[in-house]
Design a protein around this nucleic acid. Structure first.
Lengths: 192, 192
DNA sequence: TGTACATCAGTGAACGCGCGTTCACTGATGTAC
DNA sequence: TGTACATCAGTGAACGCGCGTTCACTGATGTAC
């Protein structure tokens, strides 16, 4: 049963280095020190191996969100934003697997998330609701959710594609300002 | 000199069908009805062929923006938003080439754009400045630019990855609302 | 006007690579009687 | 306790594919004298 975990570990390493395009059955086998066909004893095919990595990455993201200590809604939300940045910038390939790789298991905005399909998003929804509260401007929760998701994902993608100039530190600050402004825009008055 | 344009046309078709991953020298040659090596008579290598497609796509996007008739700043901006959606949804592969394919010629936010490297963005910057005007909330022009770019790109990416449920029409409406809200958030009062 | 030569588009075969997956197999381990 | 058999992880060779690019070439067209 250790070969299976060796395969997963090798696949993780291969994906870390080259992403989806860098994952090959033959390469993973070579890393484990085993024949390519040995992989098929443990995974139905390459897709199944990739799916396993996606599931792992999603779990890790959820664990990171769950690990953020509870506090006042706005602080809490901002800490999750920081966790998102840590994940996206510190483990770029895992971020890719969790958020970008097209997998049959991918949830869809906004329905699957409003329905509570993802614990991480459910928490964020709760926080957004509490933050905007009575000052809420009549924007639907679904819209707010998709806007936050789109902005996060778009900024990270631009940065990762090297299309945003400046250091990582500068990008993190920019990202935080943009998210703060975005959340603020959901309320009637300007924030702060 | 007609072979060169035949090659470009075939490459365009191949890219339209399969994106960057679907572009192969051999396939393009087969479409033209010519030996793979004939391509090399006209392009240094595969990358040069891809670069040519990227340049074309960027030109087309700029032409579309330039074709939007001048009007009041907010209307004008919204018409550009619509043009962006038309481009992203109507010519998804060209959108990909213009905005997502990593190319040595890619401009970077915000410096290259603030410096006027892109006529399309220069116009958008001018419009944003006019729209926010005196009510501007102290957010830097660079931040506003990156936020608009990130949100646009992120929403389209989510939609194209099938992660936003609903019809194209619904997505367009959602996109417009999100952009309107985003622009509104740059001013002191809530818009409308 | 005719000839020699350079230019140039395109050919055809091959190199060397990596890919996912098939097939029939070996050899060790565990199980039933 | 010993034997027969099933299970199962892993092997090794091969199939058939597509890829970018190299090399030496052919044959037509244009140009110079």
């Amino acid at each position: 049963m250790s070969t299976r975990s060796d395969i997963l570990e090798a696949a993780r390493a291969a994906f870390r280095e080259g992403g989806e395009a860098g994952l090959s059955v033959r390469d993973v086998a070579a890393r484990v020190g085993v024949t390519p066909m040995a992989i098929y004893r443990h995974f139905e095919n390459k897709q199944a191996l990739l799916d396993a990595l996606v599931v792992e990455a999603i779990s890790e993201w959820r664990a990171r969100v769950a690990a953020v200590p509870a506090c006042a809604p706005l602080d809490w939300f901002q800490k999750i934003v920081d966790a998102y940045l840590d994940f996206a910038l510190g483990e770029p390939r895992k971020y890719e697997a969790a958020f970008l790789v097209t997998s049959s298991t991918a949830l869809r905005y906004p329905d699957d998330f409003l329905a509570g399909g993802s614990p991480a998003v459910t928490l964020q929804l709760k926080l957004i609701t509490e933050i905007t509260g009575a000052r809420q401007r009549g924007i639907s929760l679904a819209d707010m959710l998709v806007t936050v998701a789109g902005l996060s994902q778009g900024l990270v993608t631009l940065y990762r594609a090297g299309r945003i100039a400046g250091s990582e530190k500068k990008f993190r600050a920019l990202f935080r300002r943009a998210m703060e402004n975005c959340i603020g825009s959901f309320t009637l008055e300007s924030p702060r």
